[in-house]
Amino acid sequence: MTVFFGVFLLTLLLIVAIAMVRTDNLFVAVMLGGIFSLLMATIFFLLDAPDVALTEAAVGAGVSTVLYLAALALTAEREKIHTVHQIKALVVVTTTALLVIFATFDNVQFGDPTAPVHVHVGPWYLENTQRYMDIPNVVTAILGSFRGYDTLGELFVVFTAGIGVLFLLGARPKKDTEAAETLIPQQSETSEGLRNYLIPRLTGRLLVPIILLFGLYVQFHGEYSPGGGFQAGAIIATGIILYALLEGEAAALRVVPQWMLMALMAGGALLYGMVGIVGMLLGGQFLDYSVLADNPVVGQQVGILLIELGVGMTVSGVLLSIFHAFAARDKY
């Protein structure tokens, strides 16, 4: 039966992908992108990767849809010309695909528990997580501690993206003054959000606290169930973006002002770094949490909790900053 699920979802996925590329309406492509993400997330779930599924849903269907729409609002909705260099593209793409498919003609085993990928490093984590840190979610254990350095890097990738968008959109466009004058009256209208629409407003206002609460749950329950700092950050950011959509940009900025976003961004990254450095000062290696408490297992748990908090802070700060940077662009 699983076979059938997989085949069906993959087929839908491919259909959606082709439709996304073929349509000339970018808006439709972005909406289909939401479906694409949800399908992808469901497939990940089928493949026993609930953590990844949660991330893909939060990022693909939530954050990236919002970002694409924000960018579309500032650019163009329709694609003008479909394709250029079609032949070159087909040649390159076919070569790549043949190369990839060529690899399958040799003893590649998927799902076989004796395949090399399942007998070397992977099982070690499953066997030893209980012993070293005693938390049920092995994915969180690897993410937070065994490969915590990767996660530090990941955090800084997000941080870089945040810095980058703020830097890029901090530039004043050249024909600034003229455009600003014509658009000022309209700007106050757009920043109102959906305040005058009863149903979205009612349901939305109801959902904002639920989303935030859920975000906190994902944040602090990440050691026991799917979730963790990154997913929580994305969900919390989505919640506040929802608020911004309902009540307008300005209202959202009053609740979570710019300086607070900056502080979240930098603070989360610093928190993560500090945990690493404290580990070093207490005599361990960089990012060694077992020295954080008398009992190394407790130390690991404290460390993972703290770094997940750092990740959550930075991610929510960055995503919100990016969203505001795009939304504020409307004024020009």
């Binding site: 070397h120 490093v121 070690w124 501690s145 065994f146 290696q285 960089f286 990012l287 949490y289």
Partner: peptide, 12 residues
């Protein structure tokens, strides 16, 4: 150097 004190193939 072993990051986080985890030796090589398991840690970074």
């Amino acid at each position: 150097y072993s990051m986080g004190g985890w030796p090589a193939p398991h840690g970074i």
